[in-house]
């Protein structure tokens, strides 16, 4: 069966790729586009490591067929920092709060947090925990992650007020 040509709009760049229809978005991001920041953990939609944003919503890229993402706006972890010296406030806060240990869940965790903060700039601790309920971390015990997201929310609110 033939490959299909699709346009993937990832982090503001459009890529024309030919993919087999059964390949997941996670595979295509990693193997065709070289965007290996997106991790594949369970490959069945339970762990959240593969979380990316499609049209602003957090989804499991391991359960998304790449062809389904044709002409949608995709954000991966590579799209968050404006430059290596200018990390996104969530990335900065994860480092500052020790919310990264082995790092495998981090990309998905940060994208779930971004989707949450984009919708709800001032989440309670409970809302943060619900927002990352689809992301498993086996190292941190989540406390540092929740603290980091809360701190990033504050930074982002501050940045908005300055503007």
């Amino acid at each position: 069966m033939a490959k299909q040509n699709i346009d993937l709009s990832v982090n503001g760049f459009t890529y024309r790729v030919a993919v087999e229809p059964w390949r997941s978005l996670a595979e295509v991001l990693r193997e065709e586009l070289g965007l290996t920041g997106t991790k594949v953990g369970c490959n069945q939609g339970d762990c959240g490591a593969c979380t990316v944003l499609i049209d602003g919503r957090a989804v499991s890229s391991c359960l998304t067929l790449a062809v389904e993402a044709h002409q949608r706006q995709i954000t991966t972890i590579e799209g968050l920092a404006t430059s290596p010296d200018h990390l996104h406030p969530l990335q900065r806060a994860f480092i500052d709060h020790g919310a990264v240990q082995c790092g495998f869940c981090t990309a998905g965790m940060i994208l779930s947090a971004k989707a949450l903060l984009d919708q709800n700039p001032e989440p309670s601790e409970e809302e943060i925990r619900q927002g990352i309920a689809g992301n498993l971390c086996r190292c941190t015990g989540y406390v540092k992650i929740v603290e980091a997201i809360s701190a990033a929310a504050q930074t982002l609110r501050g940045a908005r007020e300055e503007r």
Binding site: G45, G48, A58, T64, S112
Partner: peptide, 9 residues
């Protein structure tokens, strides 16, 4: 039900 990601899909 499920997770935020699954509910979005």
């Amino acid at each position: 039900m499920a997770t935020p990601q699954i509910r979005n899909m």
